[in-house]
């Protein structure tokens, strides 16, 4: 069992894998279940002594297959299979990179100050107008506007362009 550290496999990949699954199934609960199942399947495989060269890619593959299975089950056979996202168009590596970026955005949103996050989510996710948010939270429209631009600034600064050469 040398060199199997599931804690690290989770810590670096759990959230990205959940976001990867979301691109296929758009259901947070189901995404978590599928990712958890995939980790368990990998664990059992390794317990049986199987060799898995790239555990991360293997996890992504398992998550994708499970998502597609799920979509197939729910789709009426005559209807053509259309995953929500760009399956087949986006390369595996790009999909992994995208999931990692999105996982960092998720974390960055989570780390916003509470009030700021609340206002931001009401505006950007729930589509409420500034006036509506201001009324619901008892704030001025100006405060709402400021909180949203603050959130956007923090998020954009927090998520850096990462794949590049240094001093280039």
């Amino acid at each position: 069992m040398k060199d199997i550290n599931f804690n690290d496999l989770f810590r670096y990949n759990y959230r990205p894998l959940c976001l990867y699954a979301l691109h296929y199934i758009q259901d947070v609960d189901l995404a978590e279940d599928i990712v958890q199942e995939s980790y368990t399947a990998l664990w059992e495989k390794l317990q049986d002594g199987a060799q898995v060269l790239n555990r991360k890619s293997y996890l992504y593959m398992m998550v994708r297959n499970r998502c597609l299975d799920h979509i197939r089950k729910k789709t009426i056979p005559t209807e053509s299979l259309k995953p929500y996202d760009t399956y087949g168009i986006i390369e595996d590596d790009d999909a992994q990179e995208r999931s990692q970026t999105e996982a960092r955005i998720w974390t960055a949103i989570e780390n916003l100050p509470e009030k700021c996050r609340e206002v931001f989510i009401m505006s950007k996710r729930d589509g409420l107008k500034y006036e509506e948010i201001a009324e619901e939270l008892g704030l001025s429209v100006n405060t709402v506007r400021n909180q949203i631009s603050k959130a956007l600034k923090v998020l954009k600064e927090g998520i850096h362009k990462v794949y590049m050469f240094f001093f280039a």
Binding site: H23, T101, E102, I105, I109, I121, H160, K161
Partner: peptide, 14 residues
Amino acid sequence: DFEDKHLDFVLKHY
């Protein structure tokens, strides 16, 4: 690489 489509996707499901 902070593309709005990434943020929009995350926000939709957050």
